[in-house]
Simulated assay, not measured.
Amino acid sequence: MTGSDIELREWCADDAPVVLRAFQAPDMASQASWPIVSLKDATGWIASWAGVGHAFAVTLSGRVVGNVAVTGIDGHGNGWVSYWTVPEARGRGVAVVAMIELTRWAFRERDLYRLELGHRTNNPASCRVATKAGFRPEGIERQKLRYDGRRYDVERHARLATD
């Protein structure tokens, strides 16, 4: 998969240092299922994708700068999308291109029909990625997430194969 100098590829164990560095960013620290504080944790994060969905390393000019994934694929042709980029790649359209490529792949290769995602309402950058990648807002899920004892509203977006 490719879009200009942005490509998606399978994760490999050698990518663990990038994963570790990414999850050291303050806004990413609580985004993994467990704290990523060592190379062993980062290698485990990469390995944890096996059998639960499809995760791709996002590369920019050959350097890993993020992740896009489809999980929660059900019998109705629906999947849940997630994405992140390292801080130095943000604001450059990398996540948007990666999401567009992931969406094309999911509709073409996995024959999915509907892709969904959610972002905290206090994260306008994630909302911009979603909308620029063609994911339409569908509503607010009130106080859905809890981080550090605080509840957050989530805006749900979706994209259909027919959009």
Results as ranks from 00 to 15, higher is better:
155 E>S: 07
101 E>A: 11
149 G>M: 09
158 A>V: 09
151 R>N: 11
109 E>L: 07
75 G>W: 08
44 G>R: 13
140 I>Q: 09
32 A>W: 02
99 M>W: 02
34 W>S: 13
128 R>G: 09
129 V>G: 08
78 N>C: 13
13 A>S: 14
91 G>I: 05
43 T>M: 07
113 Y>F: 14
111 D>A: 15
131 T>Q: 14
129 V>S: 08
117 L>G: 06
89 A>H: 00
88 E>A: 13
5 D>V: 07
4 S>W: 01
103 T>Y: 04
153 D>M: 05
106 A>E: 08
78 N>D: 12
58 V>R: 01
116 E>T: 13
66 G>N: 04
106 A>M: 08
16 A>T: 01
91 G>S: 06
11 W>C: 06
67 N>E: 10
89 A>K: 09
52 V>A: 08
144 K>W: 06
15 D>W: 05
51 G>N: 03
134 G>Y: 04
153 D>Y: 02
145 L>W: 14
138 E>Y: 00
135 F>N: 04
88 E>Q: 10
55 A>P: 01
71 T>E: 11
101 E>I: 09
74 D>V: 01
104 R>F: 06
87 P>D: 13
120 R>L: 09
69 A>F: 06
64 V>F: 00
41 D>Q: 08
129 V>E: 10
16 A>M: 04
158 A>I: 04
66 G>E: 03
56 F>H: 10
134 G>N: 03
21 R>W: 06
96 V>Q: 10
38 S>C: 04
135 F>G: 07
123 N>Y: 03
40 K>F: 09
146 R>P: 00
28 M>V: 00
52 V>K: 10
26 P>W: 00
68 V>N: 01
151 R>Y: 14
42 A>E: 06
98 A>P: 04
39 L>I: 01
87 P>Y: 00
119 H>V: 12
74 D>N: 15
115 L>P: 00
16 A>V: 02
12 C>V: 15
114 R>N: 10
144 K>C: 08
45 W>G: 03
7 E>Q: 13
